[in-house]
Amino acid sequence: MTGGILIYAEVTKQSFVHTVFFELANKAHELSLKLNNAPVMAVLFTKPEMLTEYKEGFTYSGIDKFFVFEDEKFENYNTETYANLIVNLVKEVEPEIFLIGATNQGRDLAPRISSKLGTGLTADCIELDINEKGLLAATRPTFGGQLMATILCKTKPQMATVRPKVFKPAIDIIKKDTEFIYKQVNPEDFINNVQLIKFIKEYENNLNELDSAEIIIAGGKGMKGEEGFKLLKELADILGGTVGASRGAVDLGYAPHNIQIGQTGKTVTPKLYIACAISGAIQHTVGITASDYIICINNDPNAPIFDISDTGIVGDVFEVLPKLIEILKNSKD
């Protein structure tokens, strides 16, 4: 068997299939149409009995063939074990294209696999297409987002990791009868050079809040401290949104690291992004430019954030925000 598009279905610590899988599935389906309906396949590692929980979602994700590795020990991700099993699967299935989410796990796993296969890997892509020669054209930001590069790969499979949240997920659009193929796992497949001792949870809930939020109120260094961030939280609560931060604010401890937005943080795609006292450094703005609408408040009329905003307010956040909160509260009563 040859050809087709393979995607990696990452299972999170909470035993969910990561949302990026559904985004990749949707994109893979679109690419497959340009490749004479090449099959879309996926690979998953899971504890036994979990698959039934995922199956419902999989029927809508347009996967033709699902390769499943099942074992108790797949409770925790292990780079070497997963990479070796996937390398063997790729050699057997010979996909043209292999896509992995650019999550912490995906960015750890993908280069391990591509190097073993001696094939090319394009990291952290934000656009994928098939060019006139039928090759995968993978586009990614480089130089801190100041330059976009479209990259091609001479070898097969053409591999890419893809940023979460840049493609729309496949939901209720592509229904297929998915064939589930269970792959054999042997005791010697498990490599124990790296062992997880324990996981310490640091952040409770807002891991996925930024991913799914329609409205994000983000603050920068100019919010001056945790007090300033309370204002943002108050506004976010009224509007039904969530709070994000620049690295300037995170580095000073005004906000936790896991809500940092930008090159070394999250990419977000809300309907509305309000940047409060953020200067608009390129490393920040690469993470937000795909937002539908951007409003900024900054007291420096020359701040670069104005160049990428739809509406810019030259003003003091400590005047504008309390007033906005007040009007919104009054209009609710």
Binding site: G120, A149, T150, I151, T155, S309
Partner: peptide, 16 residues
């Protein structure tokens, strides 16, 4: 195995 086929400056479509 990989090569850059095109490099370009990102475009932003915001109203300003």
């Amino acid at each position: 195995p990989t090569y850059v086929s095109k490099a370009f400056r990102p475009e932003f479509k915001h109203l300003k």
